[in-house]
Computed example of a mutant assay.
Amino acid sequence: MSESPTPPAARVVVGVGDAPGCVAVLGRAADEARLRGAELWPVAAWEPPEGEFAARRFPAASALVPEWERLAEERLVEALRDAFGDTGTGLPGRALVVRGAPGPALVRTADREGDLLVIGAGGRGPLRRALWPSVGRHCLAHAVCPVLAVPPSPLEAALTTAHRRNTLRLRLDTGDLERESRNPR
């Protein structure tokens, strides 16, 4: 009598970046992992500062690869600490640092049909959409598993507006923050 192999554990793969909404995305991914009885796999993707093409073009840059990877690992640990404190998630799983553009790296990691890929659906204006590729769009188009896009919180949107006004040296009315957080766009 032969035993059938144990199916791999269900996983919730979550993209970890340096955006302010990362904590909310990690929290939602942990909640989904608990609901599903799944492992939590936070993933921080990184690329050389000028991209892969520049790294191949300048071989001396390869000496910096360990440092860039260490910085990505620090960013991942800091994001996990911000989201869950020093106690951790309390969930089984594995944190990964993956070299590559975020969208393709997340899709490569969440490569099982039973996985759930959780990403942030940050606000993107027309200029950002035109100049930078969207991680979310890439994941939605190429993932073999379900993708959960977590929208930014109203508070995050209000803080982004305040930061933009501050950067442009426009007058900041704190009443605007209250109205923005109560009535998100």
Rank of each mutant, 00 (worst) to 15 (best):
residue 86 D to T: 10
residue 57 R to T: 12
residue 1 M to T: 09
residue 49 P to I: 06
residue 27 G to M: 04
residue 8 P to R: 07
residue 53 F to V: 13
residue 103 G to N: 13
residue 76 L to F: 05
residue 115 D to R: 05
residue 100 G to I: 06
residue 150 V to L: 05
residue 131 L to F: 09
residue 134 S to I: 02
residue 15 G to V: 07
residue 125 G to Y: 00
residue 45 A to M: 08
residue 88 G to L: 07
residue 179 R to F: 07
residue 138 H to D: 14
residue 98 V to C: 03
residue 54 A to D: 12
residue 2 S to C: 00
residue 133 P to G: 15
residue 36 R to H: 13
residue 58 F to V: 12
residue 54 A to N: 04
residue 18 D to I: 04
residue 79 A to W: 03
residue 6 T to G: 05
residue 91 L to T: 03
residue 42 P to V: 03
residue 94 R to I: 00
residue 10 A to K: 14
residue 176 D to H: 11
residue 137 R to Q: 15
residue 156 E to L: 11
residue 30 A to S: 11
residue 26 L to N: 06
residue 45 A to Y: 05
residue 16 V to N: 08
residue 7 P to T: 07
residue 48 P to M: 05
residue 68 W to P: 14
residue 1 M to W: 13
residue 121 A to F: 00
residue 161 T to K: 10
residue 3 E to F: 15
residue 63 A to M: 02
residue 46 W to V: 09
residue 133 P to M: 10
residue 127 L to V: 15
residue 50 E to T: 10
residue 26 L to F: 00
residue 153 S to M: 08
residue 167 T to N: 01
residue 104 P to Q: 10
residue 30 A to Q: 07
residue 130 A to F: 10
residue 123 G to I: 02
residue 93 G to H: 04
residue 69 E to S: 14
residue 34 R to Q: 14
residue 171 R to I: 06
residue 68 W to S: 13
residue 83 A to Y: 01
residue 28 R to E: 13
residue 99 R to H: 10
residue 92 P to H: 04
residue 114 G to L: 12
residue 92 P to K: 03
residue 115 D to W: 12
residue 90 G to L: 05
residue 108 R to A: 15
residue 102 P to G: 09
residue 143 A to H: 12
residue 32 E to R: 15
residue 2 S to N: 08
residue 92 P to D: 02
residue 165 R to G: 01
residue 161 T to M: 03
residue 2 S to G: 10
residue 173 D to Y: 09
residue 109 T to L: 03
residue 163 H to S: 11
residue 116 L to Q: 03
residue 160 T to N: 05
residue 126 P to M: 11
residue 119 I to M: 04
residue 163 H to T: 06
residue 61 A to N: 01
residue 12 V to Y: 07
residue 31 D to G: 15
residue 134 S to D: 12
residue 92 P to A: 12
residue 115 D to N: 04
residue 61 A to E: 12
residue 69 E to Y: 06
residue 137 R to E: 15
residue 108 R to V: 02
residue 12 V to I: 07
residue 51 G to S: 10
residue 169 R to P: 00
residue 101 A to I: 02
residue 58 F to E: 14
residue 45 A to S: 10
residue 176 D to Q: 09
residue 6 T to V: 15
residue 22 C to T: 15
